[in-house]
Design a binder for these strands. Structure first.
Lengths: 233, 233
DNA sequence: TGCCGCAATCTGTGATCACAGTTAGCTTCC
DNA sequence: GGAAGCTAACTGTGATCACAGATTGCGGCA
């Protein structure tokens, strides 16, 4: 089961696609899973050495991630995981509420028995992980991601999915850093409740309720982060 | 005045940023402005020669555009401007309606006198161009883009703007190809009316009306393209 | 005359090298 | 002992070369 959760796979191991593609997926997965903290530096040469490659594929991968705002690269300076100002975080949150809420609403109309079963399985996994007193944080983050993307995939829009993936690439490091510093947020159960509400809404085809459930999930986490986390400003 | 319209500037000429950045903007501008048709091939070496550079900056720029779906690059095959299936075009249209509609609604609440004046100026330019019997198509497309982005900029969300730019990168070639083949669409005035309705809505702060105006603009053009254009399938 | 096949050319991918600007640590001087 | 300045290591950027697979067009054969 664990193998299916992105945080526990390494894109470098599957031998499909070019080296650049694999490095891109490798870094993207680690960013979404929060394995990098905002402000972290990484060097093309260091990464390429760690991966046993020349710097070319790393260069291309980093350049793509930079184009999507997932990394920042200033000429002749080290590549960094972006720091985010509070205003920027509020902006991206508002956009996520709109877009991910729309995807959830769409999923109500397009969900198939298969995708619904997938959503239910992910909901259960996340709930069970959250209820454990000593939850593995990395695992919980991955399970949360798995639930959300099960919903978004059910919407059946490749365009929407790609946009949402890019958004998660940017907020991944922040959400994860916050959860690491405030693990009690998991036990408060806000996310579990929102997921449950979302699941029920999709099961019953109530689009507006699904949108609100996702909005409250995202909004709740963001409000918490804005209150606790020292973002820039 | 014309210098302000992106289609008539060349990102290669401004000397800010790295060569890769400039090539990226150069190609992105040309894609949005529809200077490439779907299915067009381009070669790294040809582009780099035309620009008087080595292929490295072109490579990075193309790689970023490919990551955003604006170009397609299969290993050892020529880079191509993506062909789009009708289903894919419908998908991207639905997403544009939602996201660009949201941006317009947001603009109603965040517009300043300055941004409103900018929107009004762009609306007038596009209207006057459309009313000419022999409208320059490329100019009209650029003016349409200028109006839309004046609205989206007024929404004050950098995140939203970046997402919308990526969407236009993908639909640019298709919309432009269609207009070239069916120039009469411009004279039918659907776009002019929708723009006017959007402008009035923003001026009066009617968010829902602004959203509907943008939705009808996008939806109208897409319906026309789907009926006339031979997309794949 | 038409079709098959080979070869020259063109494709992106990856590695390596050179370079200039940045950073950080050490030395030296006060 | 502390701070300033210099140097050495490290940064991404760009160019060039080598390679293998795809494409294309020409020539020969039927």
């Amino acid at each position: 089961m664990l193998e299916r959760i992105p945080a526990y796979t390494d894109a470098m191991l599957d031998e499909t696609g070019t080296l650049s593609d694999r490095v891109y997926r490798h870094l993207a997965d680690r960013l979404i899973a929060g394995r990098f903290a905002p402000g972290d530096k990484l060097s093309l040469r260091a990464v390429s050495e760690a991966l046993g490659l020349s710097i070319m594929p790393v260069r291309e991968a980093v350049s793509r991630l930079a184009a999507e705002g997932a990394l920042e690269v200033a000429p002749k300076k080290a590549v960094t995981v972006p720091l985010m100002r509070a205003a920027q975080f509020r902006d991206i949150t508002q956009v996520r509420v709109e877009i991910e809420g729309f995807a959830a609403a769409l999923a109500c109309k397009t969900a198939t028995p298969e995708s619904l079963a997938e959503i239910e399985a992910r909901e259960r996994e996340f709930r069970e992980l959250s209820e454990q007193p000593q939850a593995d944080l990395a695992q919980a983050v991955a399970a949360n991601q798995a639930f959300h993307f099960a919903v978004y995939r059910a919407a059946g829009s490749a365009e929407l999915l790609a946009i949402i993936e890019r958004l998660w690439l940017r907020v991944g490091p922040i959400i994860n850093l916050d959860l690491r510093e405030n693990p009690e947020r998991l036990r408060l159960g806000g996310a579990v409740q929102a997921h449950r509400a979302c699941l029920l809404a999709i099961r019953e085809g109530r689009a507006e309720a699904a949108r609100e459930a996702i909005a409250s999930d995202i909004g709740g986490a963001s409000a918490f982060i804005l209150s606790r986390q020292r973002l820039l400003d």
